[in-house]
């Protein structure tokens, strides 16, 4: 247990080991450690960013869904309105058409009546003339008495 040169020897060994550690041991380990630290930090950062993005996307999706639902509801309402309108229009049209048909039928009937009346009148006048001829037994000039006969027919 004497103090001797071992003291100096140990100091030298100490210096050499420390130097070696500074030069060759510490840097690679420290670098690897810090790089891994950075990598992990980046990874965590990316993960939190991704989750934020996901949240945003979910929000957006929900927004879009809500909008499209609203749109669909609006379209449905519009379609309902339109269909009732079309029904209403069709009903209106049908009624107008019916009325028109009735009117035209009535007019036709009136016309028919008028024509029948005219025909009847002509026949009556002809019959009257024939009757008168028979009665008179004489030939009455039809051309000479046309004017008279027409007048008679108009009076019927």
């Amino acid at each position: 247990m004497n103090i001797n040169m071992t003291l100096i020897g140990q100091t030298l060994a100490f210096a050499i080991f420390v130097w070696f550690c500074i030069k060759y041991v510490w840097p690679p380990i420290s670098t690897a450690l810090h790089e891994r630290q950075k990598k992990i930090a980046d990874g965590l950062d990316a993960a939190s960013r991704a989750s934020r993005d996901l949240e945003l996307a979910q929000e957006q999706a929900a927004e879009t869904l809500r909008e499209s639902k609203e749109q669909a509801a609006a379209i449905l309402e519009q379609a309902n309105k339109r269909s009732s309108q079309i029904v209403e229009e069709a009903r209106e049209q049908a009624r107008a058409e019916g009325e028109r048909l009735v009117t035209s039928a009535r007019a036709e009937i009136d016309q028919e009546i008028q024509r029948a009346k005219d025909e009847l009148r002509a026949q009556v006048s002809h019959l009257a003339v024939t009757g008168a001829e028979r009665v008179l037994e004489a030939s009455v000039d039809e051309k000479a008495h046309r004017k008279l006969l027409d007048k008679l027919a108009a009076e019927l």
């Binding site: 071992t6 020897g9 140990q10 060994a13 050499i16 080991f17 070696f20 550690c21 060759y24 041991v25 510490w26 840097p27 690679p28 380990i29 670098t31 690897a32 450690l33 790089e35 891994r36 990598k39």
Partner: peptide, 25 residues
């Protein structure tokens, strides 16, 4: 003393140098 201390120091350097050389991120 010198022999064993240097051996231990060398063991330290060898172990840690090996770990440092193989160190990956």
């Amino acid at each position: 003393t010198m022999g064993w201390s240097i051996a231990m120091g060398a063991l330290f350097i060898w172990l840690f140098r090996k770990a440092g050389r193989l160190a990956t991120t």
